[in-house]
Design a protein around this nucleic acid. Structure first.
Lengths: 384, 384
DNA sequence: TTGACTTACGAAGGAGCGCTTCATTAGTAG
DNA sequence: CTACTAATGAAGCGCTCCTTCGTAAGTCAA
């Protein structure tokens, strides 16, 4: 409804160009006839459209497919390499970066370890190194990149300023968007990491195709990301998904059950304790099993709140502990069934550690699509 | 993004027609020049567009405004009366109906009392009487109406079947949409009453203009309605907003604090007890004040869950008890401030008892707008 | 009442975009 | 080598919007 606007003939051409681009992005290389049919245009018209798109660098010809009847048809494909996107995951211990083409196809990935208590400069330098590494790996220059999309823990306000970050002390009150704009001459997007992970699941993970998704980040810290109507739901102050802050939802202290389980041998480093408990539960250790049960019991309360409030199509279990989804998913389902009106589908994430970087890329692709296909902004967003 | 599609010249005209309609709906009667400017068209083109719209019955001329410089300009207005919408609120004790024009301007309203335990036939007959009354009052015929939009308590599935309704026994498992289609030859919409009330607040009430709104239905029964991105959020199985089902959210039994307050004289009918307590608290009765405090304490938990999860722009306090918002709103705000990361604006509903009927109308208008302005469906949705 | 000024109207001519049609071309199948 | 298939490219048409310009219908001031 927002993007109905009138205009002259050139607008029609713009619309048809975008339709063509979209069809090519979705369905790979297409012949002129196929493209024309999909877009509802005649072939001669579509020819002009593709000619223009080729001139502008959005589309290129590929060799015709062989072995077909009749004269071989030209085929066109979207030039996903006419621009590039960078995704970054700023975690406590690691900074991951990835570079992708405009389709979100990942072309290079790097990782830079960083101490959680590293001062600001060190952390920013690590980001710069990670991104530079990606560019070098894929032989891409700064000018080839259009957008950088960053995910980080904590609450980031609408302007890209870090409001709150329990895990990374140096991060608090930082104008992250400003820093990034200083470092890179690209459009800057910033989002909370749980929301980006949710995005990744909804676009290429186990929740592909679902419009309303609740993503549970279960790990040493708890978090949640919401996809509503196929889009990241940030909330008015970019503070959505913070159910962990509500004591009655019992998320905040839930991981304690796993960390302090009596089965864990003394001297286990704290970051390994939960993993140990989960493994022990898998192997039948009754003490560990009980700890996991208490954990899931708490986890279920906050999760039920989200399910009851939103009635999502799917709940995805992600985050560090989701490697133990075999021990967690079934008990969680049982407890939710007792609490919820309508049970959503429940699945475990399969994307692993790259899930936030990948989500950052997907978020950028989504953003780009909006810019391209929301016909409001600007004349026509085609470049050379 | 979903509604970018190519097309020929007629599509451009369609786009421009819709733009004109939208401008006229939003900004009242406009001259040709004003209209052309808003739509970004030249005057001659806009003239043709309006000519066509007048031929089709969507638009009509009004007398030119006087006292202006230069030759008086023709003015056009959207003919909101070229179609009508019916809204119905099926409550436990009352059935309300309203008839509006396409702008949602209410032209007639009726109310039919009905016993909560009335059998199905009686209830359906009351609906029919209420609607017929509206038509008679406004001298509208069945053929003038396009759509009926119904709000009712309980959970209604996506197909319009009542899944669950604690308050109205006869309602359970009813194919309400089917019944309504049998009764009226109109397009049928069904929604939960809390969601419709939320819609009313977001379109014409205290939350006007807000995109993300949490509406609290506080009364003898508790409920919630969500507006996300300016639209009613139903959830995948139309079961959103049911936080009352979660014991830990402490909504379900919250009204008990008001009903069983020691200040209430013996013999007070149960439906008046809460009102009595709230009034007593307003007058400074310490026992009642304490009961209200306990009530708000519980109310705040479920509300905080919604605010933390969604981070809405605004929370609206509605439902029967919202008449006592002066006693409730401030304490609720205090408790939320202690729990939430970012405080949403908080307001009390002002729409009163008609809020659900009005919301039903607004929902229908919204739906109509979607049909009109989502350029996908059908050729061009213009009628005579 | 008249003349200057302002603003809208309506008709004419032109440009851009998409459509249909048809002869031509480049393959495969027998 | 011929028949068949399917895409190509050019020509001509119609629709929608644009610009331009002379005309019409008001207000304002003398």
């Amino acid at each position: 409804m927002a993007d109905v606007r009138g205009g002259d003939l050139s607008r029609l051409r713009q619309l048809n160009s975008l339709t063509a681009i979209r069809a090519l992005r979705k369905a790979g290389p297409l012949t002129l006839s196929a493209l024309a049919e999909r877009a509802g245009l005649s072939r001669p018209s579509m020819k002009e459209v593709t000619d223009e798109l080729m001139r502008l660098g959005w589309v290129e010809e590929v060799p015709p497919s062989q072995g077909t009847m009749g004269r071989p048809a030209r085929r066109y494909r979207f030039r996903a390499d006419s621009g590039h996107l960078v995704g970054v995951d700023i975690g406590g211990h690691n900074i991951r970066a990835a570079l992708s083409d405009l389709d979100g196809e990942i072309l290079a990935e790097t990782r830079q370890p960083v101490r959680p208590d590293a001062p600001l400069e060190e952390r920013l330098a690590a980001i710069e190194r990670a991104v530079a590494g990606c560019l070098a790996l894929s032989r891409t220059t700064v000018a080839d990149v259009w957008m950088i999309s960053v995910g980080t823990i904590g609450v980031i306000d609408v302007a890209g300023r870090v409001i709150y970050s329990a895990a990374v002390p140096a991060w608090r009150d930082l104008d992250l968007a400003g820093e990034l704009r200083r470092m890179f001459p690209w459009q800057v997007l910033i989002e909370n990491d749980s929301r980006l992970a949710a995005m990744a699941e909804a676009r290429r993970g186990v929740a592909r195709g679902a419009r309303d998704v609740v993503f549970l980040h279960v790990g040493r810290r708890m978090g949640a990301g919401l996809i509503i109507g196929g889009k990241v739901h940030r909330g008015f102050g970019a503070a959505s998904g913070e159910i962990v802050m509500l004591p009655e939802a019992r998320w905040f202290n839930a991981p304690e059950h796993l960390h302090t389980c009596a089965s864990v041998p003394a001297g286990t480093p704290p970051e390994d304790a939960a993993g140990y408990t989960l493994a022990a539960a898998r192997n039948g250790d009754p003490v560990a099993i009980e700890a996991v049960e208490r954990y899931v019991e708490d986890l279920a309360v906050g999760t039920a709140a989200m399910v009851l409030i939103l009635d999502p199509q799917m709940v995805v279990l992600g985050g560090g502990f989701s490697r133990s989804a075999d021990v967690l998913l079934e008990p969680l389902r049982e407890r939710l069934e007792a609490r919820c009106m309508r049970m959503p589908e429940m699945r475990a994430s399969t994307l692993g550690d790259e899930c936030v970087v990948v989500g950052a890329i997907d978020y950028a692709v989504n953003h780009l699509d909006d810019q391209l296909f929301t016909t409001d902004n600007g004349p026509l967003p085609l470049t050379r």
